[in-house]
Amino acid sequence: MKVLVIGATGYIGAAVAERLAGDGHEVVALVRDPAGSGLTGDVRRGDLREPESLIGAVTPDVDAVIHAASPTGDERVDVAAVRALISTGKPLVYTSGVWVLGRTGEPATEEAPVDPLPLVGYRPAVERIVLDGGGFVIRPGIVHGYGRGIPALLAAQAAEYGLGRYVHAGGPPPVWPTVHVADLADLYPLVLERARPGDLFHAVAEEGVPVSTIAEAAARAAGTPCARAVPWPVEQAAEVLGRPFADALALSQRVSGARARRELGWTPSRPGIVEDLAAGATEDALSEIGAGGTP
C-alpha cells in the first residue's frame, strides 16, 4: 500500500513510517516544511490548519492515511482537518489516546464510556467523526521507548531534583497503562490490513504500572544519588507543568489492550516501561509533550 503519514517527523509518526517501510509499504510523508524536514522520498506539504492542503496531498495513488500528528489544541482546526481527510474517501487511522477515558479502576475496554480530561476534552468528538466516517481510531497508553516521551520527562525531573518524583493528587499512587513506541507502530499496519471500518483499538502493552515504580526507575536512569521516588503534589506540579498536564500525569488508569491482540494478532514484545527506563533516558523530554508523545 501507499500510505500517507501525517506527522512523519514526530515521535510516533516516525516510528510508524519506519514500520510501514519495513513491511514493504510505500510511505508518503506529510509535513509542514518538506525542505526543512530532513526526509527523503515522497515528502509532501500539508498543514492541519489548512484543510485544503490535506485534501490536495491525498492524491489518487494514496491508498490510506495515518494521522499521527499532535493535535493543535484548537477544536475547530482539528475537527476540520479530520473532516477533510474523511472526505477524501481513503481509509483513515487517527491517533487518539487513553486520557479520553478519564480515571479507570478495572482495565477499561474499548466499550468503556469516555470521561476526558480537560487537556483532551474535545478529542472524543474527533474520534466520533473518524469512526462514523468509516475510519479507525488507535488510543495509545503512555508511550515510551528510545529515551523519549513522558518517561523521559520523569528522568529529567529526577536529574534536576536528585530523586524521582511523580505527580500525585492524594490517595494511592496512580497507575499508568503503557506501550513501547515500536509496539505501537506495529499496530498501524495491522489495523489497515485486518480491521473493519469504524473499529477502535487500545494500544496498551501493560495495563497499569505504578507510577511510583516508574519514577524510581527514572531516578536510577538519571543516575541520581537516591534512587527513590516521592509524591509531587499536583498543585506544585501545576506551577511547573500547567494545571491540565499536571492533572493528566496524576490520573490513575488501567486500560486493556486485549482486543487488538485478539482480533488483529498484535503481539507487543518490547521491554516494559520500567525495563526500558533502566536502559537509560534522555533529558530532551519537554519537547515531546504535545508532540505526539502523550495520550
Score class of each variant (00 low, 15 high):
Leu85Gly: 00
Arg44Cys: 09
Gly164Asp: 05
Val28Ile: 14
Leu101Lys: 04
Gly56Phe: 03
Ile12Phe: 13
Leu30Ala: 01
Arg103His: 12
Val31Trp: 08
Leu251Thr: 05
Asp47Ala: 08
Glu263Trp: 04
Gly133Leu: 07
Gly105Ala: 14
Ile214Asp: 05
His202Asn: 12
Pro210Phe: 00
Gly198Met: 04
Tyr122Asn: 13
Thr88Asp: 06
Asp115Cys: 15
Val143Tyr: 03
Arg123Val: 09
Asp33Leu: 04
Glu235Lys: 11
Arg76Gly: 14
Pro91Phe: 10
Lys2Val: 12
Ala237Val: 03
Glu160Gln: 14
Thr9Asp: 07
His180Leu: 00
Pro113Glu: 07
His67Gly: 05
Gly121Asp: 09
Ser37Asn: 07
Asp186Arg: 02
Val3Asn: 03
Ser269Ala: 13
Glu239Lys: 15
Asp199Asn: 13
Pro34Gly: 04
Gly170Val: 09
Val77Lys: 03
Val3Leu: 08
Glu110Phe: 12
Ile55Lys: 12
Asp276Pro: 09
Thr282Phe: 02
Lys2Cys: 13
Ala215Asn: 04
Phe245Asp: 05
Ala203Trp: 05
Thr178His: 00
Val27Leu: 07
Thr104Ile: 07
Glu110Asp: 11
Arg262Pro: 14
Val126Ala: 09
Ala14Val: 00
Ala258Val: 10
Arg220Ser: 01
Val16Pro: 00
Tyr188Ile: 04
Val130Phe: 07
Ala64His: 03
Ala258Trp: 11
Val204Lys: 06
Asp23Phe: 11
Pro107Met: 08
Glu110Leu: 14
Arg228Cys: 14
Arg83Asn: 15
Asp23Asn: 10
Arg123Gln: 09
Glu216Asp: 08
Ile55Arg: 13
Ser212Met: 09
Tyr94Val: 07
Ile12Glu: 05
Asp74Val: 15
Arg44Ala: 04
Asp47Leu: 09
Glu18Val: 15
Gly24Glu: 14
Ala57Val: 08
Pro244Cys: 13
Pro225Lys: 05
Val31Thr: 04
Arg83Ile: 13
Ile289Pro: 06
Ala156Gly: 06
Ala182Glu: 11
Gly89Pro: 01
Pro225Ala: 00
Leu54Val: 01
Gly290Leu: 10
Arg261Ser: 06
Asp33Met: 08
Ala291Ile: 12
Val79Phe: 15
Gly24Asn: 12
Pro151Asp: 06
Val77Tyr: 08
Leu154Pro: 05
Ala285Met: 01
Ile66Ser: 06
Ala182Lys: 14
Pro295Val: 12
Pro295Gly: 14
Ala258Ile: 04
Pro295Asp: 15
Asp61Glu: 02
Ser37Thr: 09
His25Thr: 12
Arg254Gln: 09
Pro124Glu: 02
His202Pro: 11
Gly223Val: 02
Val79Asp: 15
Gly134His: 10
Gly162Cys: 00
Ser252Pro: 03
Gly133Ile: 10
Asp115Ser: 15
Glu263Asp: 15
Val16Gly: 01
